[in-house]
Design a protein around this nucleic acid. Structure first.
Length: 295
DNA sequence: ACCACGACCTGCACGC
DNA sequence: TGCGTGCAGGTCGTGG
């Protein structure tokens, strides 16, 4: 068990693996259910939760649950009072401290705690509860086609699709002299890479976070693409890194965490070469790297 | 067109 | 002990 200060330094946030883990946890319970009740206790998130959210959701059946970038997209189709092809999308973003937890009907729903902002009840009496201390998250209703919504329209490729490859990256970065770490975290370049995984992927790829984006060889971009995928997929496989605030959809405090090479390790010896890891600030974010392993 | 940075928000660690 | 300060971080919006 690491000391308390170490834990604090390693407090992960809902990055893509955590969002993916949440999706998988919820989908098995909620898909196919119809919304029966919606309670909004606090509407002040990043944007106000629409006041008509209950009437939008009630009587609609969750037909699919998708993820685009770090957005969870609940596809809902009208079934009551009359069935129709009307479909809409509930968009949920966890911000930095948000979590969604499913409470099955088998047990009594626990009393609301501080920062429990929304309850969505389904026809089997299961409840999806949104919790978000810092309220950086978002809950919005999108009329279809949701993909044309401004929040989704200009997003870059998903890291696991074939579109995200070294050729694409080289072209996307060709006109950018900005630091590669900032480019990686730019959602127009590729989605789903936040601060933690940007640090880790760059370490694994052997690329200095401050390096100019358009000064990286194709071969090294190949390595970067692989590093991004490996870092994310390892984290997903481990159930998402878990942090103080983040709880997965069943409420288990995740004890899974990537063995970080860089993130949160400034001043500690590099696990590969032993040199002391350096810290810089890039775009206001903690940036950790090894002067020996990363060029 | 591009880029840097402020703002949003709470909880926690830290120093005086 | 208690208080003030800074940091954590996703991402939109703004100003350069």
């Amino acid at each position: 068990m690491p000391g308390a200060s170490t834990l604090a330094a390693l407090r992960p946030m809902p990055e893509l693996p955590e969002v993916e883990t949440t999706l998988r946890g919820i989908a098995s319970h909620a898909v196919g259910r119809t919304v029966s009740e919606v309670r909004v206790h606090e509407h002040r998130l990043r944007w106000p939760i629409p006041t008509d959210l209950p009437e939008r959701l009630i009587g609609r059946k969750l037909v699919r649950l998708d993820r685009r970038s770090k957005y969870l997209l609940f596809r809902l189709r009208q079934v009551r009072p009359v069935s129709s092809d009307r479909e809409g999308t509930l968009l949920v973003h966890l911000g930095m401290t948000g979590s969604l937890r499913w409470y099955s009907a088998d047990a009594a729903l626990p009393a609301r705690r501080t920062h429990d902002h929304v309850d969505i009840r389904f026809d089997d009496d299961g409840v999806l509860r949104y919790h978000d201390p810092r309220r950086f998250g978002a809950i919005l209703w999108l009329d279809d086609p949701a993909d044309e919504h401004p929040l989704l329209a200009k997003l870059g490729p998903e890291p696991f699709t074939p579109e995200f490859n070294a050729r694409y990256l080289q072209q996307a970065l060709a006109s950018r002299s900005t630091a590669i770490k900032l480019a990686l975290m730019n959602n127009a370049v590729v989605v789903g890479v936040g601060n933690i995984y940007a640090n880790e992927a760059l370490f694994r790829a052997g690329i200095r976070p401050t390096r100019a984006s358009n000064r990286i060889s194709r071969a090294r971009l190949e390595r970067l693409v692989e590093a991004v995928r490996q870092t994310l997929s390892e984290a997903i496989a481990k159930g998402g890194s878990t942090l103080r605030d983040y709880v997965d959809s069943s409420g288990e405090p995740g004890y899974f965490q990537l063995d970080y090479f860089a993130y949160g390790r400034a001043g500690l010896p590099c696990r590969v070469c032993g040199r002391m890891l350096r810290e810089a600030r890039l775009g206001g974010r903690a940036t950790v790297f090894c002067t020996g392993c990363q060029r």
